[in-house]
Write a protein that binds this DNA or RNA. Sequence first.
DNA 1: CTTGGGACCTGTGAGC
DNA 2: TGCTCACAGGTCCCAA
Length: 286
Amino acid sequence: MPELPEVETVRAGLAPVLVEQRIQKAEIRRPDLRWPFPENMAVRLTGARVERLARRSKFLLAALDTGETLISHLGMSGRWLVMGAAPLAAFRHDTDRIEKHDHVILELEKGAQLVFNDVRRFGAMDLWPSDDLEAHRWLEALGPEPLGNGFSADTLLAGCSGRRTPIKAVLLDQHTVAGLGNIYVCEALWAAGISPLACAGRLDADGAARLVAAIREVLRAAIAAGGSSLRDFRGADGELGYFQHDFAVYGRAGEACRRPGCGGEIVRDVQSGRSSFHCPACQSGP
DNA sequence: CTTGGGACCTGTGAGC
DNA sequence: TGCTCACAGGTCCCAA
């Protein structure tokens, strides 16, 4: 489900109900997700007040007044949902299977509940000292934020230099730039006119500049649309994102390329076990 | 060091 | 109806 735009959508929806609220009770309903939860997580959360809710790449960072930060990752199917608000009650009604995968429930002041639901359990949570966050193993090796000043044609070119792997693999790997996933890599490469199969080491300065601009624009537009709802992504408020209607290539194998005057047909390839979509007519490379 | 493949886990839809 | 297979937005780990 969640790449950077979806995580940002969740952050924006969660912040108004979570920030400046105290966690009155933490119910931890299993010992782990992808990894074990931190020791005594319920105790360390209970009574803590959330001071800020930030995002780094695909991680949500809730800074607590205890000096620790609750780090969470949605994996493939994780969601943070706000319960107790009227609109949400309607959304939850017909789907009792959802409750089956509610793994962490945080009760806030004023009765609202935050529920972490994750069918596949590829998600993760940890608690870590806020003043040493960058040393956390999930965060220490992350590349720059794609929408931040640390990401540029120069840094992208440096990350691609000498690499024999396809450009798609470099963008999915979180070291050169952090936060992209399968959907937005495919979309950005299409927007830049570069094939996902193209050799990373052959990216030139012009291509790098186009790719950086394309990544930023695709992410910006997706965030503005509330992310993409394939299957079941929802924002924290239960709202659907709608960027999936704007996909140029993702999931469109056999359909016409949307670039004006192109006339090509989108094809699906499998690269290192994952679907890639591109238009052979207007995306350069092998 | 780089790279590709499998592993983790559950659910859904297509085809027989 | 029920079986099997392929596939799904992410990341880690290991062998070559």
